[in-house]
Design a binder for these strands. Structure first.
Length: 481
RNA sequence: CGGGGCGUAGUUCAGUUGGCUAGAACGCCAGGCUGGGGGUCUGGAAGUCUGCAGUUCAAGUCUGCACGCCCCGACCA
């Protein structure tokens, strides 16, 4: 018997970056493409994206948001209308200068984000207070010419949703931006089982053109942090640049206040990193394409029948279940394959199970096999499996939450700060005077940047970790992906 | 965009001081025996050795240039 060559996948603990890439490629989530920096998302990975879309789309619609589509190409001049915006995005743009064999009069930018092309339309569509709020969302792709790429986390082209709303007042816009944050938080924590920190970005880290950027950040097992989503309060910056005005009830011409918010295929990267182990992917039950894989160990009629009975019963209750009855693969091969692909529960059906009226269940998150006796032949499997899926979902979240707690360091000296960044990394919670200069120096010296000021942060008295001047809040710092 | 590494079968790679009719393993295809942790036997298909130019009787191997990919930094969701 040949043993599985574990060298095909590096260990998560010792070769984290390599492990991450191996798991994606071998798990058939994605593949490299002929175009540098662009990735192919394979069916198994795309199915995860579809589940993400389906959950978020439903929640957005619950807030009254409608989906729309805007063009891939944006006139170059549009981007220039908002000063910070163009400065932020210029280095990353792909620009089309030739069309149909002829040089274009005005270059077209491949959208890096759609604010400008949408708000040009908004300026025509919004005339009256009755037109507000205007709540639109796009499911599309965007292009940002990244110098260095990494599957799912940083690719030149990526998929996302971008929501864009216009409101009558600053407060309305702020409330909406925060409602979106709640949706993202619920999604990240309850569906992806990844705990997030929710807060506000510093001036230097905010979206180019925004007044306030809110973000959700998650700590990964290697001690770095991934931004899981953002929700921007754009103030009236774009309204002024694009002249988006409405007549209020008193007949006064007013600028609108806007939000934009996004969550991308990047979260799939976070999903892989957060839960995976040396065997491969570990997918939370609520997001995985397949929740239960049934593997017939015997080829007897009785075993085949039993597999099919289990499948029908689980399917009837909405569980995503699949039988792997491929003739050409051996049982051991199938075990390894579905572990690599992160299926939460495996049910093995052979002669023992039939004879003893029991179920052999393998839990992917714990890599543990257990045998469950059934009281009689008519007892249903469903409650067992449903409860177990819930239990796994919770266990994955709790595990990550515990990890975050253990790797969040409240520090009071810069030496301590530096020491942590040099060794175990993780989240650092420390006073900062909010001077961009201190922030830049800390980043240059330790790689840690400010991540967020928690939404519920209380005002305290302290001294900036770097310069020692008076500081009123503690911020989260970490090295970001 | 800087620094490093590498381009040979689908994949990972081997290929000696230049001698090649270019190999292995895994994978793939056909069939047999199997089946509780990547099982096994037999047979088979598969290559513009990244490209271009040069040196040479002879280039996968040496030289130059180009292109591509991977890794590490700065930029970024």
């Amino acid at each position: 018997m040949k043993t599985f060559d574990k060298k095909e996948i590096k260990k998560k603990s010792t070769d984290f970056d390599r492990w991450y890439t191996d798991v994606i490629l071998r798990g058939e989530l994605a593949d490299y493409s002929p175009v540098k920096g662009c990735m192919i998302i394979r069916p198994y990975g795309y199915e995860i994206w579809e589940r993400i879309q389906s959950f978020l789309d439903g929640k957005f619609k619950g807030l009254g948001v409608k989906n729309a589509y805007f063009p891939l190409f944006i006139p170059n001049s549009f981007l220039k209308k908002e000063k910070e915006h163009v400065e932020g995005f210029s280095p990353q743009l792909a620009v089309v200068t030739i069309g149909g064999g002829e040089k274009l009069a005005e270059p077209l930018v491949v959208r890096p984000t759609s604010e400008t092309i949408m708000y040009d339309a908004y300026s025509r569509w919004i005339q009256s207070w009755r037109d507000l709020p205007l709540l639109l969302n796009l499911w599309n792709n965007v292009v940002r010419w990244e110098k260095r790429t990494y599957l799912f986390l940083r690719t030149t082209e990526f998929l996302w949703q971008e929501g864009h709303t216009a409101h009558a007042s600053f407060e309305d816009a702020d409330n909406f931006a925060k409602k979106i944050l709640e949706i993202y938080k619920k999604f990240d924590e309850e569906i992806l089982a990844i705990p997030v920190l929710v807060g506000r970005k510093s001036q230097s880290e905010k979206f180019p053109g925004a007044s306030i950027t809110y973000a959700l950040e998650s700590l990964m097992p290697d001690g770095k942090v991934i931004q899981m989503g953002t929700s921007h309060h754009l103030g009236d910056n774009f309204a002024k640049a694009f002249n988006i005005r409405y007549l209020d009830k008193k007949g006064q011409l007013q600028y609108v206040f806007q939000t934009s918010w996004a969550e991308t295929t990047r979260v799939i990267g976070a999903l892989i990193m957060s839960h995976g182990d040396d065997q491969g992917l570990v997918l939370p039950p609520k997001i995985t394409p397949i929740q239960v894989i049934i593997i017939p160990v015997s080829r007897s009629d009785a075993a085949v029948q039993k597999c099919d009975n289990i499948r029908k019963e689980l399917e009837a209750d909405g569980i995503r279940v699949k039988i792997d009855n491929r003739e050409e693969k051996t049982v051991g091969w199938k075990f390894n394959e579905w572990e690599l692909k992160g299926v939460p529960i495996r049910i093995e059906v052979g002669e023992n199970e039939i004879k003893n009226n029991e179920l052999t269940i393998y839990r992917r998150d714990l890599n543990q096999k257990s045998i469950r006796q059934l009281a009689d032949k008519n007892q249903k499997y469903i409650s067992n499996i449903k409860d177990l899926l819930d239990e796994i979902q919770k266990a994955l979240f709790e595990k990550m939450k515990k990890f975050r707690e253990e790797n969040t360091h409240e520090v009071s000296s810069y030496d301590e700060f530096k020491e942590i960044m040099k060794t175990k990394k993780g989240l650092i919670y420390a006073f900062w005077c909010e001077d961009a200069n201190c922030e830049a120096k800390i980043k240059a010296e330790t790689k840690a940047s400010t991540r967020v000021l928690p939404l519920d942060a209380k005002k305290e008295q302290g001294r900036c970790i770097y310069c020692g001047k008076v500081a009123s809040h503690r911020w989260y710092f970490a090295q970001a992906y």
